[in-house]
Nucleic acid binder design. Sequence first.
DNA 1: AGCACGCCGACT
DNA 2: GTCGGCGTGCTC
Length: 699
Amino acid sequence: MSVARVAVPIAARQSFDYWVPDGLPVLRGSVVRVGVGARTLVGVVVEMPRESEVDPTRLRPIVELVGDVAPVPEDVLRLATFAADYYGQPLGSILACAAPPVGAASRRSGVRGVTKPARAPAASAGASSAGASAASTGASSTESPAAPHPGWHDPGARVGGALNSEQQRAAHAVTETLGRFETFLLHGVTGSGKTETYLAAAAEAVARGGQVLLLVPEINLTPQLAARVAAAFGGTPVGVLHSRLAAGARRTTWRDAAEGRARIVLGTRLAVFAPLPWLGLIVVDEEHDDSYRQEEGVRYHARDLAIVRARERGVPVVLASATPSLESFHRAEVGAYRLLCLGARAVPGARPPSVRFVTNRGLAAGAVVAAPVLEAIGERLGRAEQSLVFVNRRGFSPSLLCHACGWAACCPHCTARLVLHRESRELRCHHCGFARRVAPACPTCGNQDLTPVGAGTQRLEEQLSERFPQARIARVDRDTTTRRGAFAAVAQRVSSGEIDILVGTQMLAKGHDFPRLTLVAVLGADNALYSADFRATERLFAQLVQVGGRAGRARLAGEVLIQTDFAEHPLFQALCAQDYQSFARTLLAERRAADLPPYSHLALLEAQGRSREDVERFLADAWRLAREAIAALGGRCECFPPSTPSLARRAGLERGHLLVQSASRRDLHALLRAWRPELEAQGARRVRWRVDVDPADLG
DNA sequence: AGCACGCCGACT
DNA sequence: GTCGGCGTGCTC
């Protein structure tokens, strides 16, 4: 009996060995069910060792080979192994994302047998040499391999025909590299036709027999883009993949991708692990978007993994954005990525929206919308055009204050203000979900006149409906869109002209084209300018460009009004001038001066526990261990003293963290590899901790 | 992650 | 005297 090493999705960092029952065709990549403790879990075979180092009597047999899903292909296993190492995660947890979703246990154990390995289609002219070999090592489908879709007819000419010369040059630069690795940064202003451009390159990759992986940040956007992709490719099968898809549908796409039937796989971050035996091109749309960062549970950055995968498979990868991440822009500046710029607006006659600033000064007490903004909305109502008012905060107001004694409504479990939700007459904590009824009077001094301070979407909606009682107003935020399909329903009503004013948070910023929307007003943007988060200004700029892009996409002129007290800030000036690149260079200079990414690499040890003493003791020890490890490795990494994040307590848990940094990613990882076992050996003394590699911010 | 084993407060 | 709180450790 042979032994299989199986990675299972538990916190344990090692894989476990099992007996392979005689005749069960188990190989590296096989998806199996195994007993772990009292439970049966789905795991992935990562190795077929000669023998086990574990006492043979302790080995349990594999319960079942999951036969209705394809084995995880070799390149995906390598990608998962890389991700597990890079992000310091258990391989089994990464593979739980990378493996196809599995249904309930089947009655019969095992499958009929191994089938012949898949072959690349004849037309794969250079597009997938690495893919073909990966497919033949790992794949063993229960059906014979699929030929390229028969009903397909020259999308290359069809998609490419509509491009202007600039777009054609960009698409051509990509198609020229099909068959080898290169990273492109496709930078174009909103409306410059980035989508058409990368779809043209995708069409060519498909024409050469390759598969295309198209990553998008948001589930909300996929139906729209899927329709666009389907239309552009006229009949070429598109597989859609995201976490909210039912397991069955996901399995179907997985199988279609693994067997080569799906020529295009469109999906969110988890799709970076999709099996694509004939992969020819990867596209990461809106590459700057934070949604590519998986924060809960297993941590990884899908954009970065996409680049790793492209390199491994020897295929080009296109990162597309109107506001590239500083990391990507920097890589392009130093020549590591090839920069492709699209300058012109694709729709003839469409102009970039004009940007105007409106001061907050002189606002009446309690008022949140400045008079010029109200006027502009009024004008739109008169012309039967639509307005969008954007504030990045849900609820009525972010604080409830007593002006008599200075008391503020705070969460009992977090170091945070409670947000007033007037519709439900509640004070809610946006960090832990705590909610309680609004107190009628100040608990410390008895003052009955508590003042809501600051503006959220609810307050905005209320004031706009008072000012424009005849207007049809829709509010879009997490409170109004929890129901499945709620977002799409509002989008539909906006498109059909049933809405005059849209009020909402950043979830409105992305992707939607509303032809009659000609005004975008932005409130509360200044908050980001004060933020301690080192990525705040980068994010704000991206967000403003993004919301600005909602205005005047078609022939109607668009206007963006920004309510701010800092109109002269370089960020706003760059926004006016539509000049991403010079602003990016300004920010990069700041990052360089502060020794922040992309000029350094960071990892953040985050700890939380019931008592602050426990957390502080753990971090003090961790700090000492880090300094010892750095010394042992000969320096080249820096380690900062433990500190307390601004949200010092969350959901009743005290938080603390410790930052390590290096100019070299290699050195930083050498440190992490030495440091982590030391931390584990410390034993978690009432403290839960994790290391966040490439953290989004330093909280 | 679960779930089991192991040591200190209120009960049939 | 036990039931059970969760804190710590193991799972092939």
